[in-house]
Amino acid sequence: MEEEIEKKEGEKAGGDHSHGSDGVESDGGDHGHTVNFLSPGHLFEHIQDTDYFDLPTGTWSKKDPHHHNRLTIGQPYSDGETVLVEGSGSLTPMKLHLTKFMVLEVIILIVLIGVFGWFSRKIKGGKPAKGRFANLLEVFILFIRDEVARPNIGKSAGDKFLPFLLTIFFFILGCNLMGLLPFMGSPTAAWAVTSVLAVITFGVVCTVGIRKFGLVGFALAQVPRMDLPFGLNYIIKPMLLVIELFGLVLKHFVLSVRLLANMLAGHIMLAVFLAFVAESAGSYMQYLIIPAACGGYVVIMFLELFVAFLQAFIFTFLAALFIGSASHQH
């Protein structure tokens, strides 16, 4: 498989001179060979966090004359040196780098403040929402309130956590939808983002439980009630306590990985379909492959649109569920 791709690249490089200009810039420009569009490195480049924005082919960035088609983000706080955290394994070093996902998150924040500030003025004083967009927003807000917060946490307590749940829902939704826009990306396809969201949820859950039952009470509340013979009580319950506490942490870990995996997988699929187009361009198979890949891309795009809403809902729903179960005895 790899050999085939290599061979095809060779053909292309030799046979098609015009290809070089619309091909995406290779990372290792000094190697001098054409990019393998289907290589994992190339697929991931467009999904993972970077310190530049991809731009349409043919555009030129003055800031970064070595790379066409990309807008490098200015770094006010960083000279590229590692600070505080040394990277190792999956942990990347801390450089105080401003990246694409940070910019996108800020854009989402501004958009959300604009949209919901407008909406809050629109329905101020109990006025009914007028217009399609305002009604759409209201449907989302009421859904989170009536179908997520209140059934899982309770009416008055649920309303208390509504700001948290709404923020998490619309933040994740915004991040997910950002990935469907051209030249943008999904911040939720980075584990750093989803894990922070999960950690915040875990913090909220623990705070709720500890406030209600106390630290020890919250830990003990994780153990299910059961009637055991006198002796077994002292053996089984501590074991269960350990398992349940581990499960509590695991639940939130899974929360972050579920969102990450969903977004990453969808975007990799999209990238693969695009790579098919780039890879087959100029070959005699292109008239067959490109339409099929474009068709597949559109279908996956619709699926991604659905997944963007679904995963935002699932994350919010599970957060509400965990908060609800933390405030009740098992």
């Binding site: 993972q48 999956s90 990347t92 801390m94 924040l109 750093a192 922070v196 915040i200």
Partner: peptide, 22 residues
């Protein structure tokens, strides 16, 4: 490429931004 690459920059930024957000 690492799907589980974890950037402390991004995590810290997201955490602070989320607090601002909420």
């Amino acid at each position: 490429p690492d799907a589980l690459a974890w950037s402390p920059d991004l995590a810290l930024f997201t955490l602070l931004l989320f607090i601002v957000f909420i």
